[in-house]
């Protein structure tokens, strides 16, 4: 048994062919997730720092390699679900602070931002249009602006 670091897609293929076992990342454990959940509940104004791709990676590992996990997968799945929900509620509360110029999304992960993106971009665009003094000339130069919130 030799340990090696390979890209996730390769690991999953090898796992499918029964050539390797996947070592679960340290954050994908009951202890860590419980701690993260606790932090989320305790600090209502900021998000706990999770890996940028935590939803995607946990889904792939839970789907493709549940037998490699040292802890019961259904518990992990439930914890992930809880964590996602508590963060979603928090993010929703944060949306009340929307304005036309910028939004801070510290520690939100890729999928979570993705879910909110259509709403956030749509609202910010509309608020910008409603801002007094935005005339047609200015809008041309603003066309490039959406790139900056293309997260």
């Amino acid at each position: 048994m030799k340990r090696a670091e390979v890209p996730l897609w390769l690991g999953l293929i090898l796992k499918q062919q029964d050539r390797c076992n996947i070592v679960t990342p340290s954050w994908l454990s009951i202890n860590f997730l419980k701690k993260a959940y606790q932090e989320e509940v305790t600090y209502t104004t900021r998000f706990f720092r999770m890996p940028w791709n935590w939803l995607e990676i946990s889904k792939m590992i839970l789907d493709k390699a549940p037998d490699d996990m040292t802890e019961p997968p259904h518990q992990i799945r439930a914890l992930i679900q809880d964590l996602r929900e508590v963060r979603l509620i928090k993010a929703r509360r944060g949306l009340k602070e929307l304005n036309e110029s910028y939004m801070q999304l510290d520690n939100l992960s890729l999928m979570e931002i993705n879910e909110l993106r259509p709403m956030v971009v749509g609202v910010m665009d509309q608020l910008r249009k409603l801002q007094v003094g935005t005339n047609e000339d200015e809008e041309v130069s603003d066309e490039e602006a959406p790139l900056s919130y293309d997260i």
Partner: peptide
């Protein structure tokens, strides 16, 4: 409102409309 705002520069009215849109957008979400 967008057209009205650019025609009259009515800052006060636009601020109210913005606030309204914001609140309703949260409800929509």
């Amino acid at each position: 409102s967008v057209k009205w705002g650019s025609m009259f520069n009515d800052t006060e009215l636009m601020a109210i409309v913005q606030e309204m849109f914001k609140q309703r957008a949260c409800a929509i979400n």
